[in-house]
Design a binder for these strands. Structure first.
Lengths: 349, 349
DNA sequence: GATCTAGTCTGAATCGATCCAGAGAGGGGA
DNA sequence: TCCCCTCTCTGGATCGATTCAGACTAGATC
């Protein structure tokens, strides 16, 4: 049986409050007594106030939850997620808070329960998929603060993100400028449970993942502007947001029928996967990514940069010390088109 | 004021126990009453039992702590750490546990306090530096289980790791086999607070970080075997375990005086940094790494592979459901020498 | 000498749940 | 009819601390 604060109090012959004060409010008792208490505690092997009991009484935990909508162990397959996490960690560290990474079960009810069971003071919701509604709802009903990075924030929520649609449009315009007209758009989980490869998406509204939807919409905008409409675009769905999944989606039969000259990916990892497959098949299509992760530069991937570390850092800051001014609750980060070598001009047909 | 379980009980007109059972032991009450309780709870906006209170009473938290000895935000600068974390996340996910990433202050007292304040059921201590003693001590006095990956585990502790020294020796032997005799060894924090670049290390025992020490010892073993002794080796210290730090250490004045033909790094990230600097300076030395992270293959880095994801997974498993057999508390993982192109034969002098 | 103040320390209430022994009610078997 | 068993539900103790108003002491002030 581990000794408790009470045991220490009895051993020293003081009240529990005093022992508590010895740990949490050294100015409330004489240094002499404090020393005696601490000594006795050490001797008894008392490790200091129990964190859980302390949290219960104090009403805060000292940890913020980070919620990934895909499986937690996938959180690290995309270096962009890692960048985000780095930023969150920076802010948390400065603030002295811990980071609770919560695995979310795939089903909505399970996810809800996971959110309800997390002992934290607030949440960073990263890259909200379709489940985000349920999750945010659960957080809200717990009355905890949260920050989203979702593509379409509510006005009253704290948010840090980018203009997904405009950013996507910027790469796509780069491609139209290079003469590409028949292209494939590559994204993670375009439709739920789709096999890797081409999928029919009648209407963009059918795409459940908001970020994916916005990016695809941005791509579509650029092509619409040069007279290529949605139905002429090939949509490739990957099973998850990873390099192998990108490779598999592009490698599926009929993924890239003849007239296609370029692949626009919704994430660099997917683009890198696409490049893997194309290299192997010795096909030379233009490929673009999204995020500008570290691996993008060495292979010359043309992409859109978004400041990942900063995104995480500002999100956590928004949570940990929110600005008094409510107008500052939403932070729009800049994006930049980074032109490298992976996407050259379309071959003249 | 958020409603509590008590409030729900009063609203429905049942005891608190019954409401509690409605959430945690559905078989203990009639479905009819349970439905009524849950409905009332929803209506009142009661989000379910408070996780902190529940943890206090139940005596467990449902989270495991992951301790990085360097700053938490640096935890993600080394992809190997990310691999480890992925593995831990996999096991945690399967077990339904959360992951608490705890930022450790640089000072021992602060680190101790951080450990004492973490609300978790156990710890994974990753890549223990010199501070590990203090940390493990703090964990032990809390009476919590833990797993280390340290280079020199105590027999009674749970551990998963590799034979650091033998693994390091294997790359080094590869280099001696290629004729390299005058080399530099590159490591993170060889001596506390050393500036980037060459440092004098009279005795390996002076190196505080056990993993670094073991790897350097392994390198030294191989060179000793061909008659090159410790004093003839150049030791380069990096300020932290990251690619830029590796580049800086190698780029310092006098880091690589003339006869040197190879750089043996204690981590792939450092090796990649070294390659950056060497490429820029147009010097063609042999370079080897350690870990075999994803970035190693594309640049042809010769290195030692250790199974990172598996390391994390097994560590977490050891924590979450420990084998009954105490002999199975220590798991030695295999390493493999991966020969690529970054280290060719030494030029004939 | 009475009053005030500052410095220490105490006791009881409280945070929000879970657990366990046991009370009542209703049904079945002898 | 009586006893036992099962199914529901209750009350009170408990997890391990923090908090806050107040008690007590001793020295300072007038």
């Amino acid at each position: 049986m581990k000794p408790t604060l009470r045991a220490v109090a009895e051993a020293v012959g003081v009240s529990r409050s005093t022992v508590s004060n010895a740990y949490s409010r050294p100015d409330q008792l004489s240094t002499e007594l404090r020393r005696r208490i601490l000594d006795a505690a050490r001797e008894m092997g008392y490790p200091g106030p129990d964190p859980t009991a302390r949290s219960l009484r104090r009403g805060y935990v000292g940890a913020i939850g980070v919620l990934f909508t895909s499986r937690l162990s996938y959180a690290f397959t995309d270096p962009f997620a890692t960048q985000f996490l780095t930023g969150v960690a920076q802010a948390a560290e400065r603030h002295g808070s811990s980071l609770l990474l919560v695995p979310l079960p795939a089903d909505a009810a399970g996810a809800r329960k996971a959110v309800e069971n997390a002992a934290v003071d607030g949440f960073c919701v990263y890259c909200g998929g379709d489940e985000e509604g349920e999750i945010v709802d659960a957080i809200r009903s717990r009355g905890l603060p949260f920050v989203t990075t979702s593509a379409r924030p509510r006005a009253e929520d704290r948010w840090v993100g980018i203009d997904e649609r405009a950013a996507a449009r910027s790469v796509a315009e780069h491609l139209t400028g290079l003469g590409h007209r028949r292209v494939a758009l590559l994204a993670d989980r375009v439709l739920p449970d789709a096999a890797p490869g081409p999928v029919r998406v009648g209407d963009l509204a059918d795409v459940p993942h908001p970020t994916t939807r916005e990016r695809l919409a941005g791509f579509a905008d650029a092509f619409a502007a040069v007279g290529v409409d949605w139905s002429q675009l090939t949509i490739l769905s990957a099973t998850d947001n990873s390099r192998p999944a990108g490779a598999a989606a592009v490698g599926a039969p009929d993924s890239l029928p003849e007239p296609i000259t370029a692949v626009l990916a919704c994430a660099d990892v997917l683009a890198l996967g696409a490049l893997d497959t194309l290299r192997e098949a010795d096909r030379h299509l233009a490929v673009t990514g999204f995020d500008d992760i570290a691996e993008a530069a060495p292979v010359g991937l043309t992409t859109v940069r978004q400041p990942g570390v900063q995104k995480g850092r500002r999100a956590a800051e928004l949570l940990l010390d929110p600005p008094v001014d409510t107008d500052a609750h939403q932070i729009l980060l800049p994006t930049t088109l980074v032109v490298r070598t992976s996407a050259g001009p379309a071959p003249r047909s």
